[in-house]
Design a protein around this nucleic acid. Structure first.
Lengths: 355, 355
DNA sequence: ATGAAAGCGCTAACAA
DNA sequence: TTGTTAGCGCTTTCAT
């Protein structure tokens, strides 16, 4: 395979030169037929058909590296996120990909495992592959990544955690936490024990943007019930189930039982909480209400009722693509509301029906 | 930016020509320094340092399209799978990506939404991007995809569903279903009602390879308890939660209650099953045992005990990379065992601690 | 309506 | 120890 002088189609992938020789046409004619610009070049319908047939027969497919090199763009659209193995991010991935393909882009999704150096390395790699656009979701250092993209001339957008040099689409974390806190507060039945009768905010990382906003929402509600927030009401012990299990046990020990209200800030922390809860007698939950920021269909069916907040991952991605389509580059922030889901409710995700 | 005649570094990404001019060296020297082959070319340490410094200053990063075009390989490794938004596949993605990066590859993960035409289109796209290797996980038509890859000279490996023209790494579905069926059978307490005292296999697609194998495992156990399998014992109603909810309700109506034993063949079907179960009184489950093929941490904590099978997604991917590393191309089949997980058990996934 | 030729950024012979 | 050069497969003027 290869240039005109080489042997006829035998092994490897055919190029436009092969098809050109086979079809008695020039490489440029073949090129324009095969990339759909032949009408503009006023190639005859007949030639076009002949070339297309030939290409089909020989299983021609364009070499995107060559095309990209020449056109100075790749057709790739990148997204980085912390990890695949997480309901929220996996759902972002799914929407990201479907939207990308609808627009003729080839999506490349990379997970950083929340490692800041890896994050940088991966973005550099994606830039090396000449991605045409980058979605930055849940980065540990959005600003640094934005800078890298800007230096390389790669347009980008921030998802979930905002950046400052490009548009951002973020969940309304304040509103979601407010709604969940309010619901839990409404259902809380004080037991006459000051330490237990507070609403506790549990899990997550208080230095990350989303958690900060959620804590603000939580505070705004809690302050309508009490005149101050105690330090011990906010236990941001990270996302690890194992850590969460230890911390919730410590809390229950300290309180001499469950708190009247508990707002868990992530599904993974909630996993840890549950691993402790199952060891308690059923009546331990009689005077407690529990909520979780993030949704899981099975968490909806636990032995204790769990109020949940479902982030609108599809909405986040849709709004982001709206901005991409509109060529928005200013550092505006778009907020997308989250949704309160009562216990024992299955949220119907159209894609989840695919199992 | 660009060739020697162009203006100095100002806008866009610098190329080796820019660095060469700035460093008073030739493009090929710069090239070999920047791609790490400079020792073999016996470039002086001093030159190498100088070039590297310059590249750093100017934020040089190689153009992988150009490199790939020249080297006839891209550094990309692809994987296709049905969907991101699924615990098992998301877990495959995570392992696939970590392993790829350890080996210096750039992973590209594509989801097909179980659409056969999309599957083909996506594989063709990946081939256009000159991926160096393809992981084919859970394809609807593995053979067709294998053929495409073969034609393009792309080495590939099948995950979960085997193909016939390259190595395959699959879950031991027979063994997993056998173990789960046996466990359920051990715990089943006959109620003296022939229709209810059977073990029912519920959900999934009986035409897909994995489900077929699981049904075989189920049958082998069930036949040690009964002398025949009735047609109505196998209800492969797909993966949709909505469909599963309807079918389980129909089954319970028909039996006048829950079956003594139920083996649900996927988490998504189990979601549908649960949405029916929560409407039943608690004592409805007193004489039933329930199992689910696939693991979910919250399903472990439901109000009814659920025995689960956790597929070893990390093991599948590890074994696959072993074969890749070993250059295996023969159509061998490697089986990886699945693991029975008792109710109320959290399987500790090292990556899940990242939340 | 089509062909010839230059060049995208990089690598790898081959020279020196 | 380093430079020169051809060419990877494609697109795109510019000719014809």
């Amino acid at each position: 395979m290869g240039r005109g002088r080489k042997s006829p189609v035998a092994t490897g992938k055919p190029t436009i030169y092969d098809i050109a020789r086979l079809g008695g046409a020039s490489p440029s004619t073949v090129s324009s037929v095969l990339n759909g610009t032949w009408k503009a070049r006023r190639i005859s319908e007949e030639t076009a058909r002949r070339i297309e047939a030939l290409a089909g027969e020989h299983g021609y497919s364009p070499n995107m590296q060559a095309r990209g090199l020449r056109r100075a763009q790749s057709g790739l659209i990148g997204m980085i996120l912390p990890l695949h193995d997480n309901r929220f991010f996996a759902s972002l991935s799914q929407s990201f990909e479907v939207n990308a393909r609808e627009r003729g882009w080839c999506p490349v999704i990379a997970s950083t495992l929340r490692n800041p150096e890896e994050e940088i390395r991966i973005v550099k790699t994606l830039i090396s592959y000449a991605i045409d656009y980058l979605f930055i979701a849940g980065a540990t250092d959005p600003a640094a990544l934005g800078k890298l993209c800007a230096a390389a001339g790669v347009p980008h957008i921030f998802i979930d955690l905002p950046g400052d040099d490009a548009p951002s689409v973020v969940s309304n974390n304040f509103g979601g936490a407010e709604a969940l806190s309010r619901k839990l507060r409404e259902l809380m039945a004080p037991q006459g024990d000051d330490a237990r009768d507070k609403l506790y905010f549990f899990g997550g990382d208080a230095t990350d943007y989303a958690t900060k906003k959620r804590i603000e929402g939580f505070r705004s509600v809690e302050l309508t019930y009490r005149d101050r927030i105690d330090n011990d009401q906010i236990i941001s012990c990270g996302y690890s189930p194992a850590r969460a299990a230890r911390e919730i046990e410590a809390l229950c020990d300290r309180l001499g039982g469950l708190p009247s209200g508990l707002l868990v800030n992530s599904l993974t922390a909630f996993e840890g909480v549950m691993s402790h809860f199952v060891r308690l007698p059923p009546d331990a939950f009689d005077h407690s209400v529990v909520g979780c920021y993030d949704y899981d269909p099975f968490a909806a069916y636990l032995r204790i009722p769990v109020h949940m907040v479902r982030q609108n991952s599809h909405g986040l991605i849709s709004r982001a693509y709206d901005l991409v389509d509109g060529g928005e580059t200013r550092p505006i922030i778009v907020e997308v509301d989250a949704e309160l889901i009562p216990p024992q409710t299955i949220y119907k995700n159209p894609l989840s029906e695919l199992g």
